[in-house]
Simulated scan of single mutants.
Amino acid sequence: MNRRNLVLFALAAGFAQVSMANPQFQEMTKWSRFFSAADARGSIVVLDTRDGSDITMVYNVSRAEKRYSPASTFKIPHSLFALDAGLLHDEFQVIPWDGVKRPTTAWNAGQTLRSAMRNSTVWVYERFAKELGEARETAYMHKIGYGNALVTGDKPFWVEGDLAISSFEQIAFLQRLYRNQLPFQVEHQRLVKDVMINEAGSDWILRAKTGWTGKIGWWVGWVEWPSGPVFFALNIDTPNRLGDLAKRQSITRNLLRSINALPTVP
Score class of each variant (00 low, 15 high):
54 D>E: 14
91 E>C: 01
74 F>C: 05
88 L>E: 03
72 S>Q: 01
85 A>K: 07
70 P>W: 04
59 Y>E: 09
85 A>W: 03
81 F>N: 01
89 H>C: 05
76 I>R: 00
67 R>M: 14
67 R>E: 12
69 S>P: 11
83 L>H: 08
60 N>H: 13
64 A>I: 05
49 T>H: 07
77 P>W: 03
62 S>E: 15
51 D>F: 12
48 D>W: 01
90 D>Q: 08
48 D>E: 08
76 I>K: 00
50 R>A: 09
54 D>A: 13
72 S>R: 01
67 R>P: 08
84 D>I: 00
55 I>D: 13
80 L>T: 02
53 S>F: 00
58 V>Y: 10
65 E>R: 15
75 K>Q: 11
45 V>K: 04
68 Y>I: 01
68 Y>P: 02
78 H>N: 15
88 L>N: 08
79 S>K: 02
91 E>S: 15
54 D>C: 12
59 Y>C: 02
92 F>S: 14
83 L>C: 10
54 D>S: 13
85 A>L: 11
45 V>T: 11
71 A>Y: 06
54 D>N: 15
71 A>Q: 08
67 R>Q: 13
84 D>W: 05
56 T>E: 11
94 V>C: 07
64 A>L: 03
83 L>E: 02
45 V>F: 07
68 Y>K: 09
85 A>G: 04
71 A>V: 08
83 L>K: 02
52 G>D: 11
82 A>S: 12
46 V>T: 08
89 H>F: 11
80 L>Y: 10
54 D>R: 15
76 I>A: 05
90 D>V: 06
59 Y>N: 07
91 E>W: 01
46 V>D: 10
49 T>D: 11
94 V>T: 13
69 S>G: 12
79 S>Q: 04
77 P>I: 06
50 R>Q: 10
53 S>W: 00
81 F>T: 01
60 N>Y: 03
62 S>R: 14
79 S>L: 03
78 H>I: 00
53 S>G: 06
59 Y>Q: 02
91 E>T: 11
46 V>S: 10
63 R>Y: 08
94 V>K: 13
62 S>M: 12
80 L>F: 09
70 P>Q: 03
47 L>T: 12
47 L>F: 03
61 V>F: 13
60 N>S: 13
78 H>M: 05
68 Y>L: 13
72 S>C: 06
55 I>V: 15
59 Y>G: 07
67 R>L: 12
69 S>F: 03
